[in-house]
Each structure stands twice: as structure tokens, then as C-alpha cells.
Nucleic acid binder design. Structure first.
Length: 578
RNA sequence: GUUCCUGUAGCUCAGUUGGAUAGAGCGUUUGCCUCCGGAGCAAAAGGUAAAGGGUUCAAAUCCCUUCAGGAACACCA
């Protein structure tokens, strides 16, 4: 069992023996290292609850804690803080276990979890705004897997709404003679479509602008959307061809980012579900008519802000993304029967998911055994506080951001890496830089997106972690293949590394429960910083004391292993050299 | 207008059941390569925590008021 947790449980037992029931004991790294390495702050609250003197209670408990041989020192300070110092021998023993054991961190009970992330819109460019859903979703997926869960990732494409109607209208306006616009067109896909992905990307903003400015154009776009949803052969074929073009590009970018999906489902996959779901909902008698639309009322008396009804069928007979999201839940329940479904989406969509979640429960599509979780993330804003735009007012594509950071990365690389290898490695590092920067703040925080900052390679950044990791690997290789064990500590910076290692399990668990990756990046930084401090204070390979050298190599191996594991969770690749 | 979120160092952000002298990176200033990869290590300076009040032995954290910024509020997704 995890060392810290074992000590916490033991302290809890001691408290219980003294007649104090506490829910859990939490040891935190000491804020004042001169007093101890870890501290327990729970005594003060306990004393208050029992109307006792906190200092006396702390002294009484501390006295009993001294019998634990893992503690080198136990002391009381201030109003009732208990400060703990661990013995080197206990740390060495625990570190040895971590290094040797196959399952060196604890898993949780296994749940089946579907994660809905990525959420790109077909026919729109993948821009920096899409970065977070992909990054966070992928990392949460890997974290959940690491902790023993059974996870399915679904990209959930935006491929069935009005935006498709707009784009198709624009194509029809430009190329009215395409085969798919002819009567009795029956082919699967449009063979004469003269359009590349770059064309598609340009089409959408133009189409959208036209529709917004002219109600007639909007009406036409809506009508095409309706026809598409009615499986009109020509529009459906055009839609399939657009999907092909767009998906190919998306898959390329996601692959670069080490983001992979188990399912490439989209809104359009709800199409086949909707009729049976509508029938079910009709039987349940919860569909209402309102202003020509079919809705489900999901408002509650307790709502402070009126929650609008879920819009099932719009007045123009098309379905909304509320309908497709509800139908997707229906299908996921039927096929996978998951314990949890997570939605990693922009936090501005919270109301939408509140509606969908409520409707799914109200209609008994899901019962309480399936947990729906909205995992909203903050917006990447420009310096003006508005969603990020490039200088000319456009969005910055993921590809452009990647190129930008890649060029900057090349400047720092060693000269001996040349040609194709330089291209490949600079891309790997650039992606690591971008991801690390994106994970740095709390998931739900809006943050200022500054391309220059994303290029930064100094300090708390991806390259820093990658550099340290590579240097460790290089050292391990130079040390040769001899068997190493944790046997002796100098008790200075080497002990600090072992203390930092104690927090590993908690970091994983906290990160999992908060669904935020910033704790992992923060931990990676501190772990590596402390290791680098140790590294610069000592000459490992020329150390004369064999037991010390042995321990130090083992320590390097352990930190390296932790870096590997955590970077793997963040989906950041470690290059061979840089 | 209603509801919610945010306000912490020059900038970007952390802050673990309320805990000790509020942390980190960047930027600024200054040390450290005879030596395992210097994209490194060490240190200094930098704070009325938006403002005011309350609860508490103890508040960035909980409560109230005010100010400022942002977001959401059914036929876009």
C-alpha cells in the first residue's frame, strides 16, 4: 500500500484508540521544512469539536506517534500542528518497492466510462479552441485507464446541423451543375466534387456570414439541412463526400497530437436512433408542442434561473443537437451500458448539457446507476479577454500553432540532430510544449492564450520535463546494466527526492477526482526540479561510496519511471534526444 | 434584466477537510561548467489578496455589501 496512506491510516487508528473518530487523516507536505517534512493539521479541528486544548491534545497524540519506527521525529508547533520527519530507512524501503514492483501504484474499482471529447465540426478548421477538448479528454482517458477503468473515447463529430446546410448551399451556389444537384441522383458519393479540405475551411465562414446577413439564404440553408436529415439522395451523397475530405484532415492532426478515439461517431449517427426514441418518448407522454416545435420540459421549481425546455424537433422539422445528444445517450446505454459518461466540452455549454441530462433522467432513458458528468473547460482568450483571434481577426489553426512552436523549438535543439530527424523531433517537442502549457492552469480557468508563451521552452514547460527525462535516461545508460538497490542516503537533496516521490499516488487520485491535469504538470515540474537540484549537487557516476552511488542510480531510475508514466498519461511523447 | 463564474507579484497562473512567514513560472538583478546533456542549479527583489464589513484561536478560502470583468439565458453547435 502507498506509504503515505499507510501512515495516515495508522494515525487514524491511534486517534480512534484515544476515542476520536475522524473521517480521514491527511498528511500534507510541510509548509515549514525547518519543522518537519509532512504535517497533520487535523488536531485543531478535533480539539475544537471536543472542546479540548489543542496544544495538549496534539502533544498527547504526538507522544504516541513516536512509537512508529517510520517517523524519525514527531513534534508539535504553534496552536497544534503535528510535524513529522520520516526515517531514511523507511523511505529507502518504500522506494525499493516502487522500483521493483510491477503494479507500483494502486488501481481503483473498475468502471465502464465513455468519454465524449474532441467534438470537432465537420467542414470547420481544427483551431486552437479545439485543443483543450482533445488534450484534456485524451489525458483523462489515459488517466482513467491507468487507474484501472474501462474507458471508451468517442470523438462525437458535429456533422449533422445547420452548418452542414450552410456549407452545402454555398457549394451549390458555386457549382450548381454538380451531378449531385441533378434530379434522380442516386450515387453514394459525389465523384465530380472539385473541393479540397482547404476549400471547405474557407467555405464555412463565407456561408455562415451570408446566412446571417440574409434571411432568405438562411431559409435555404435550413431547408437543405432538413432535406439532408430526410436522406435526400443528392445532399446525402454530397454530405458523405464532405465528411471524407474533412475527416481525413482531422485524423491527421489528431494523430500528430497523439489523440486517438475508439469511436468516430457523430451527431449524424443519432439519425437511426431518433425514430425509435421519439416513439418511446411519445409513449412516455412527455413531449409537448410549443411554437411549432416539439419540446421536453426540463425546468424545476428549484431553478434560480429558468432552464429552457429541451428542443427535440424545431419548427422547421429539423432536429437539434439536443436531440442528437439525447439519442446518443440512448444508444450508448443500449450498446455499452456505461457506469459513467463524461463530456469534455467548453464550459459555456453547461446549460445545454443540463437540459440533456435532465431529459434523459426524466424520460427514464437512464436511471441513477449511470452518472453523467459535465467536464467543462475554460476558454482560451486573447489579450483582450475575448476568445482568441489572430491579428487579422481569424482563428489560429492547430496546424499553424504547431508550425510556429516547431520553428521556435528548432532554435534550441543541438546541432548534431539534422534533416528528417530534426523535423520529427522538433514536432514531438513542439507538441509536448503545447500540451504542457495547455494543462498548466486549472481545467475550468479561462486563460490568456499567447503564442509567444506557448513557444517558451524555459522554466515550467514541456521541454524542461523532456530535457530532464532524457538526461536521466542518458545517465542510466552510462551507468550500465548492473542491479541497483536503495540502500543508503546522504540525507540531503537525495532525501528530498524520495519525499517528493511519496506524493505520486495522491497526485493521480486528486487529478482524477478533480478531472484536471494541472496537478500532474505541477507535480512533474516539482519532482524534476528537486531531482535536478540533487543532480547538480552530486556526481553520481564518479561517486566513491558504492552504496550511495547504487541508491542514486536507483533513484534516477525511479524518477525516470514516474516521468514516463505521467508523460504517457498526458499523451506527451519523449524524444530520444533533443 | 436574471443567474452563474472570476478578481492573488509587472505578466501568466497555483493554492490540498479554513492553518504557521500567501506559492510557482516568465520578466528583472546576481552567483554556479576541470565534472554524468547548462532547454540546468542556486539566490535576491517584487503582495493593503478588487474594496469594505462579519464569523473564527486562525480567512485568499466560509457569509454579507459594493465595484470591475466574463459567460449563459429554446428553433447555431
Amino acid at each position: 500500500m502507498n506509504f503515505l496512506k499507510k501512515q495516515e491510516n495508522w494515525i487514524q487508528t491511534i486517534l480512534k484508540q484515544n476515542g476520536y473518530e475522524v473521517e480521514n487523516v491527511i498528511l500534507i507536505p510541510s509548509g515549514k521544512p525547518e519543522f518537519g517534512e509532512f504535517q497533520y493539521n487535523g488536531i485543531m479541528a478535533l480539539a475544537k469539536k471536543n472542546q479540548e486544548n489543542p496544544q495538549e491534545l496534539a502533544k498527547k497524540i504526538a507522544e504516541q506517534l513516536k512509537q512508529n519506527e517510520n517517523f524519525e521525529k514527531v513534534s508539535v508547533a504553534g496552536p497544534g500542528f503535528i510535524n513529522l520527519t520520516f526515517s531514511c530507512s523507511s523511505l529507502l524501503k518504500y522506494s525499493e518497492e516502487l522500483l521493483l514492483e510491477e503494479n507500483w501504484f494502486e488501481k481503483k474499482e473498475s468502471k465502464k466510462i465513455i468519454i465524449d471529447y474532441g467534438g470537432p465540426n465537420v467542414a470547420k478548421i481544427l483551431h486552437v479552441g479545439h485543443l483543450r477538448s482533445a488534450n484534456i479528454g485524451e489525458a483523462l482517458k489515459r488517466l482513467a485507464k491507468c487507474l484501472g477503468h474501462d474507458v471508451i473515447g468517442d470523438v462525437h463529430l458535429g456533422d449533422y446541423g445547420l452548418q452542414m446546410g450552410m456549407v452545402m448551399l454555398e457549394i451549390q451556389t458555386r457549382y450548381p451543375n454538380l451531378s449531385c444537384f441533378q434530379a434522380d441522383y442516386q450515387k453514394e458519393k459525389v465523384e465530380d466534387l472539385p473541393i479540397t479540405n482547404n476549400d471547405l475551411i474557407e467555405l464555412y465562414p463565407i456561408a455562415s456570414k451570408k446566412a446571417k446577413e440574409d434571411e432568405k439564404v438562411m431559409e435555404q440553408a435550413r431547408n437543405i439541412t432538413y432535406l439532408l436529415q430526410q436522406n435526400h439522395p443528392g445532399y446525402k451523397a454530397l454530405w458523405r463526400s464532405i465528411m471524407d475530405i474533412s475527416l481525413q484532415d482531422m485524423k491527421e492532426v489528431y494523430e500528430k497530437l497523439s489523440v486517438s478515439f475508439d469511436l468516430w461517431q457523430g451527431e449524424s449517427d443519432a439519425e437511426k436512433i431518433i425514430p425509435e426514441m421519439m416513439e418511446y418518448l411519445n409513449q412516455k407522454n412527455i413531449i409537448k408542442e410549443s411554437e411549432g416545435a416539439k419540446i421536453i420540459d426540463v425546468a424545476l421549481d428549484t431553478d434560480k434561473l429558468a432552464v429552457p425546455p429541451l428542443l427535440l424537433i424545431k419548427s422547421n422539422h429539423t432536429v437539434s443537437y439536443e436531440t442528437t445528444d439525447l439519442a446518443t445517450i440512448w444508444e450508448r446505454k443500449k450498446i455499452y451500458n456505461p457506469d459513467e459518461i463524461w463530456y469534455v466540452v467548453d464550459k459555456r455549454q453547461e446549460l445545454h448539457f443540463t437540459q440533456v441530462f435532465r431529459a434523459s433522467k426524466k424520460a427514464d432513458i437512464l436511471n441513477d446507476s449511470t452518472k453523467l458528468e459535465f467536464i467543462g473547460f475554460g476558454t482560451m482568450n486573447g489579450k483582450d479577454g475575448k476568445p482568441f483571434k489572430t491579428r487579422d481577426g481569424g482563428v489560429m489553426s492547430l496546424r499553424n500553432l504547431l508550425e510556429l512552436v516547431k520553428e521556435e523549438t528548432k532554435k534550441n535543439m543541438i546541432d548534431s540532430i539534422k534533416g528528417e530527424e530534426r523535423e520529427k523531433i522538433s514536432e514531438v517537442i513542439a507538441i509536448g510544449t503545447i500540451k504542457f502549457a495547455d494543462f498548466l492552469s486549472h481545467r475550468s480557468t479561462d486563460y490568456i492564450f499567447d503564442p509567444e508563451k506557448f513557444c517558451d521552452a524555459n522554466g515550467k514547460t514541456g521541454p524542461f520535463i523532456l530535457y530532464s527525462t532524457i538526461r536521466m535516461r542518458s545517465l542510466i545508460e552510462k551507468a550500465g546494466n548492473k542491479e541497483v538497490h536503495f540502500t543508503k542516503l546522504k540525507g540531503t537533496s537525495d532525501k528530498k527526492v524520495l519525499l517528493q516521490i511519496l506524493n505520486f499516488q495522491k497526485v493521480l487520485e486528486n487529478s482524477f477526482s478533480s478531472k484536471s491535469l494541472h496537478e500532474i504538470t505541477d507535480y512533474l515540474y516539482h519532482l524534476n526540479n528537486i531531482y535536478n537540484n540533487f543532480y547538480s549537487e552530486n556526481r553520481i557516476l564518479t561517486e566513491n561510496d558504492e552504496a550511495l552511488q547504487n541508491t542514486w542510480i536507483a533513484l534516477t531510475k525511479l524518477v525516470f519511471k514516474m516521468n514516463q508514466t505521467l508523460l504517457q498519461i498526458l499523451a506527451i511523447e519523449i524524444p530520444n534526444r533533443m
